[in-house]
């Protein structure tokens, strides 16, 4: 019987060793250690043994069973680990395959420029003012010191709806309306919006375009305040090391009037194709609010003064992003629009 036991043990260990997966091993467990297995049979058959041999034999069977169990468990752990390993290998993926796209759109480049400017001035205490795109001649011209017959009206040929109503040629009527509404109180606003002029559309002209203007009115507003404000704007918009220069100019609604150049952001001022070899780029027009404009809106030009500035987001976007044709802004070609996707803070 002892010999039989040894043989069983050898057999079991061999089969454990030969098991290649969890299922085979479980079959071995059932075959040798199960209730109907040969080891259990041996234990059952112990009754036939003389009583004095029974404890010895019982102990021996138990030792063999424990030994086999131990080896089997060790083998089981190994096979289970192997199984997990195989599973993981089976589940592995090509991580270089494309992900499920999250499609998002983006701001139109003009909105991108306008919001950047708006946010800068909001941080300096400005509010955003808006007004109608179809305007009265009064707000578009007369209230801005451009009476009927004024030669400067030629500068901006207009789309008239009737003798007194037209598509606004600039966002300045928003300033006139705001001044009228504020009844002599201080003002600090930015006015963005669409404007219209009688131009044939080509690479540099568009009958519809956008403007963004600023207006500050208060006690003792000086030209130096305008220059300082514009310098903050230029640095924020075009880089910390931008310098500005003012050149005399003319607008009927400001006196003195200036144009502002910034040092070229591409070459830094040494001269390149962006600044046409001058080192400077014209960015905006500005000036001190003309006393006639203040008086027309009911402001006492002896007590209050102000400055105003205005620029074209198209021009800024063209300079900043190197866009060569203004018509791109209104064609809405997805291949154009989608290039303004990434953030740039």
């Amino acid at each position: 019987m002892e010999a039989q036991l040894q043989q069983l043990k050898e057999e079991a260990l061999q089969k454990i060793e030969a098991s290649q997966n969890v299922k085979e091993l479980n079959d071995v467990r059932v075959a040798y250690l199960g209730k109907k297995g040969p080891i259990t049979d041996l234990l059952k058959g112990m009754g036939k043994l003389p009583a004095e041999e029974r404890p010895k034999m019982g102990a021996l069977v138990n030792v063999v069973r424990e030994e086999v169990t131990e080896v089997l468990e060790a083998r089981m752990t190994l096979l289970q680990e192997q199984a997990i390993q195989e599973q993981l290998e089976k589940e592995s993926i090509d991580v270089t395959l494309p992900g499920r796209p999250v499609k998002t759109g983006n701001h139109h480049p003009l909105t991108r420029v306008v919001e950047e400017i708006e946010d800068l001035f909001i941080s300096m205490g400005y509010e955003i003012a808006e007004g109608p795109e179809v305007e009265k001649d009064y707000y578009n011209f007369e209230a801005l010191n451009l009476p009927k017959g004024h030669p400067a009206r030629d500068m901006q040929d207009s789309f008239y709806i009737s003798e007194d109503i037209l598509l606004r040629t600039h966002t300045s009527p928003v300033q006139a309306r705001t001044m009228e509404a504020k009844e002599g109180k201080p003002i600090k606003i930015i006015c963005p919006g669409k404007v219209y002029r009688r131009d044939n559309d080509d690479a540099t002209h568009s009958h519809q375009f956008t403007q963004i203007e600023g207006l500050v009115i208060g006690e003792d507003i000086r030209m130096s305040d305008l220059k300082g404000t514009l310098s903050v704007f230029a640095k924020k918009m075009f880089g910390e090391d931008r310098e500005i220069r003012l050149r005399p100019s003319f607008f009927p609604f400001t006196e003195p009037s200036v144009e502002m150049d910034i040092s070229c952001f591409k070459c830094g001022g040494s001269g390149c194709n962006v600044c046409k070899k001058t080192g400077w780029i014209e960015i905006l027009g500005a000036g001190m609010v003309h006393p006639n404009v203040l008086e027309m809106a009911g402001y006492d030009s002896k007590k209050l003064s102000g400055f105003a500035f205005g620029m074209g987001p198209e021009r800024i976007a063209m300079l900043k992003y190197g866009v060569e044709d203004i018509r791109h802004f209104y064609t809405n070609d997805v291949r154009f629009l989608s290039q303004f996707h990434r953030t740039e803070v």
Binding site: E127, I128, P186, K188, S224, D225, G228, P248, V258
Partner: peptide
């Protein structure tokens, strides 16, 4: 010369700006 004009910022009552 406009280059001679200094750079300052408006001195006024401080009010928050913002969007409506």
């Amino acid at each position: 010369g406009y280059d001679e004009i200094p750079m300052t910022l408006p001195v006024e009552e401080s009010k928050p700006g913002g969007l409506t």
